[in-house]
């Protein structure tokens, strides 16, 4: 009985960490089911916007439910990869619950990516994005700088636990105001592309793609939840962009 409870609690926490790291519902179901089968149990999962419930069923049909809060999403494909590998370790090598929990804690407590590297990479990416949209070299450089300032601000504000919606508005405002410099000082020939691209690093692409993945897998509640989150954040960044352009007296067309 104790091991049954231990397995249920572990699977519930495992499912919550997978969801928090940005896994699709299909992957959560597959991994949890695989681990439960590895320990001679079966499982079903109910995924809600802020909680996940894992129902664990013993061979004698005794069933128990384990509820865990999923918490604030912090996308990490590294964690998803390691958690998926862990599920195969349980399924193929019969890893015991206590060993699985030890590995799980190591994965959960892993340090996030280097903030300076992420800042530089995102700025380069947005600059490259500007080039893909036919922006000139000056526009690309302006976007690089605007992104660097905006993303740095995002990192600082999120570290201070400021509401993510407010963060999106402020970052979009700052990046768009800086990108307006291209038009204000007549630096390049494609200032409108610089302004339009300057806030694209804020578009919540991964949650958006996850939501459609959930839809294709018929997880409609999760689809609507993730889509709603994405729409709210997109509205916040649009409001920040509009405010920036209004302050700088730059027209959209």
């Amino acid at each position: 009985m104790e091991r049954f409870d231990e397995a249920g609690r572990f699977l519930s926490e495992y499912a919550a960490l997978l969801l928090r790291s940005g896994a699709t519902c299909a992957r959560v179901e597959k991994n949890v089911g695989r681990m439960a089968a590895g320990w001679g149990l079966s499982s079903t999962i109910t995924i809600l916007p802020r909680h996940v419930t894992v129902s664990v069923i013993a061979p004698d049909k005794e069933t128990k439910n384990f509820l865990t809060d999923t918490g604030q999403t912090s996308i990490s494909f590294d964690k998803i990869t390691k958690l998926s590998r862990l599920s195969w370790e349980v399924a193929d090598r019969g890893l015991r619950i206590e060993d699985a929990r030890r590995s799980f804690l190591q994965i959960a407590l892993a340090s996030p990516a280097n903030a300076v590297w992420v800042l530089f990479a995102v700025s380069c990416a947005n600059g490259a994005f500007c080039r893909l949209f036919s922006g000139d070299a000056v526009a690309s450089l302006v976007v690089f700088l605007a992104t660097m300032c905006g993303y740095y601000l995002k990192q600082v504000m999120l570290a201070h636990k400021i509401d993510v919606r407010l963060v999106f508005m402020i970052c979009a405002f700052v990046s768009s105001v800086l990108a307006c410099g291209d038009s204000l000082f007549s630096l390049g020939t494609t200032p409108e592309i610089a302004i339009g691209t300057s806030v694209l690093y804020l578009v919540p692409g991964i949650p958006f793609l996850n939501s459609f993945s959930d839809m294709l897998d018929k997880h409609y509640i999760c689809f609507f939840c993730r889509l709603t989150d994405t729409v709210v954040l997109t509205c916040c960044l649009s409001a920040g962009l509009c405010a920036g352009m209004w302050v700088m007296r730059v027209g959209m067309f």
Binding site: I75, A125, F129
Partner: peptide, 22 residues
């Protein structure tokens, strides 16, 4: 086109903290 798409993908993937080999 391929070059700038590759840079954009590397940069945007950095946000989602992938394994280094990815």
């Amino acid at each position: 086109d391929a070059f700038f798409a590759a840079i954009a993908a590397i940069g945007f993937s950095a946000i989602s903290n992938p394994p280094k080999t990815a």
